[in-house]
Design a protein around this nucleic acid. Structure first.
Lengths: 206, 206
DNA sequence: ACCGTATGCCAACGAGTGTTGACTTGCCAG
DNA sequence: CTGGCAAGTCAACACTCGTTGGCATACGGT
């Protein structure tokens, strides 16, 4: 009763015959494993997501996971390849950067369970936490740096932005606090935009 | 190399002889177990914190944990007994409620590792998540209800407040994003107070 | 002195984990 | 047709986990 994913209906549709020339379909199984791994890691986190369960979802033997990805850590590393895909916001008026960033993050997350997976894992797994640190330092940090005048303020402002956005992801997708689940994305965007806007552009308080 | 707590120096000082009348010191061991459990759960989360490790920290046999707390779930339930201890803010001017709440949460968290433990656990353990939901629905929800005019808005506003405050706890104490770790509590309070103030008191946007 | 009882330890069980190696199957080149 | 090779299966190993029951020990009351 602690399962995150129903046991039935695993890997419904598979590619009939992947393109390539030689070698039957090793790339297809590789992809199937990765897909199943993403779902399981997302639902259960690193520790509770077992290789056996992932293999069962992908309808292959657990040993194939080892053959293709070396170890559970290796599989997770491949599954958690994560690109925020932050768009270019250079033509957004500076007083609407907050709204643009919040709106984008929502369109990105509502259909992709990778971020909750990352949060779930990073909470208990040191290498998962390191990965989140790297993602936000490089991707969000550099994006924020382009939005502000003094680049030395970028890390601090990016940290504040992350604290609010990850807080929403945590309460809405992971903890599932009812008020945060029930609220509509539009209303949430309206509430959050001024916050992010201030973290990005307001003068440093003191 | 995945250990959260160094193996040495476990349970340094123990009460020489707890007060009571009969029965040597069962209450002392009970407390020692609970203390060690809090540390381990805080550092490692529910899954990675093993009963054997907790028992070793408390310098007793794993079976004693079962005797006193029935099961690992029971131990966690006892260890995660969590009271936000929100103070009475009824005499705070309404335009400084945000600052008061943020300041309080900081004095509460900086010396107490229970909240990170709860977050770490709730991320992967369903009953842990349920506990967080209950805590914030009852404790924070009712506190917020007393701060606003229309009580029907309380859950939504409390959810928003939780998203920011838990986001800070997550990024500062669990993920340890460098910018959020390095920033001083005073500066963090200055940044966060307007956010919380708005979530508490601003008219609903639309 | 004795005994009941609470306190604690020890060894073990059963289940589940990641991981490994040897075996079987089916395809394509020669 | 035949040999080689990649894809996949199977059973098992070594380990750790939560949990259990039996056994030792030392206290307090009588």
């Amino acid at each position: 009763m602690t399962e995150g994913v129903p046991q039935q209906e695993r890997e419904a549709a598979v590619e009939p015959a992947a393109g390539g020339g030689r070698g039957r379909s090793s790339e297809a199984t590789r992809a199937a494993i990765l897909r199943a791994a993403r779902v399981r890691f997302a639902a259960d986190g690193y520790d509770r997501a077992t290789i056996r369960a992932i293999a069962a979802d992908a309808r292959i033997d657990p040993s194939m996971v080892m053959r293709y990805y070396g170890s559970k850590e290796g599989l997770f590393a491949a599954a958690a390849e994560f690109d925020l895909r932050l768009p270019d916001l250079s033509d957004v008026p500076t007083d609407r950067l907050g709204e643009a960033l919040v709106s984008y993050f929502f369109t990105r997350w509502e259909g992709d369970a990778t971020l909750p997976a990352l949060l779930r894992t990073a909470s208990t797994n040191p290498s998962g936490a390191e990965r989140v640190r790297a993602i936000f330092a490089t991707q969000l940090g550099t994006a924020v740096a382009r939005m502000i005048a003094d680049p030395t303020e970028a890390p601090r402002r990016a940290g504040l932005v992350a604290s609010q956005l990850l807080g929403v992801a945590l309460t809405r997708y992971v903890l599932r606090l009812p008020p945060m689940v029930d609220i509509s994305p539009a209303e949430l965007i309206a509430w959050l935009s001024p916050t992010i806007q201030r973290y990005l552009r307001a003068p440093i308080p003191g």
